[in-house]
Design a protein around this nucleic acid. Sequence first.
DNA 1: TCTGGGGTCCTAGGACCC
DNA 2: TCTGGGGTCCTAGGACCC
Length: 383
Amino acid sequence: MDAFYASVELLRYPQLAGLPVVIGGGRRQQDDALAAQYGERLADIPVAAFPRLADYVGRGVITTATYAARQFGVGSAMGLMKAARACPQAILLPVDFAEYRRYSRRFKQVITDIAPVMEDRGVDEVYIDFTQVPGGQREGGRVLARLIQKSIFEATGLTCSVGVAPNKLIAKMASEFNKPNGIAIVQPDDLQTLVWPLACRKINGVGPKADEKLQSYGIHTIGELAARPRDWLVAHFGRSTGAWLHDAAWGRDDRPVVLESEPVSMSRETTFDRDLHAVQDRALLGQIFTELCQQVAADLQRKGYAGRTIGIKLRYDDFRVATRDHTIVLPTQDATVIRREAGLCLKRVPLDKRLRLLGVRVGKLLPQSEVGRQAQGEGEALF
DNA sequence: TCTGGGGTCCTAGGACCC
DNA sequence: TCTGGGGTCCTAGGACCC
């Protein structure tokens, strides 16, 4: 989906179309004041009444920027304070994840009505297997891609970009070629002309660290990566990563489109308005900690899972991260149990520096429906 | 007053078992 | 003449993605 969060907000606030708008941070007093004053008539709010990036004080990052805002050099993951210097006049809207999820469900429903083999890749992205869809091969997939775009737009008013290719790796790259509202078709023979000139960073899975290492060897493009012998890549990046890099550069990827998958972990974390100290801010930290445990427990219960590994995550004021976890015998989805185990984890981690973030995680998940069976199994084993 | 929140996967060492 | 070879599980950290 194109600039998904921002595009959903523009459906509510059409008066902001074409303006630099960024989504980020939480709900603020100005936001509540506007909502109270205009009620349901959101489209009537004058542009001048919206909060600006320049007025923002506090922590947070941009989650999405409209294409107009990107012209000013602001974009996803940029700190709001830094973005405010680059584009102070941009309108700043708070994240409304519940609303984005509603639109996410709608556009995915449109897709599965047309092409049922769809893999969920988060709130704004999917892989679709066109292979068995009637007409899926017409014009190399362009006809079906157009149908999906048109159907999504009619149902939601949102645009998306589609990459059509023989596998997920290349399709993902292709989806970036003609953003927004574009279609790109990449056939196997197009590898050298369309993919090899791209930066290695365009490979889904090559991040800043891997890219830096590749650059240090003089490898900047996917073509340069493809030119390195497989053995050389294995020698410098390890057996697994080296082989994967070689395959990726040659456009090889045999991962299937996966329809369903079980969650591995669930977590809640929060960055504080100001850095907190374990001693001076003990009461506040304790309250936040308990709330995080209750939220994770509620998430587990709502989705029907229980987990055996309880963990915590801290981010110190210097941005270093520490994690501790502990695996218990019986899976739990109980806030009290999670709070107790997470509390023990907290005792094992240094707490002399100020904290920026606190998180609670439950892993080794099992559907709640299988927990009884597991407990029964334990009982049988005991006797 | 730089730097969110929710995830997955990988690596590597140590414990423990056969 | 010191002390194998697999395997699984647990834990901590880190890279990466949306």
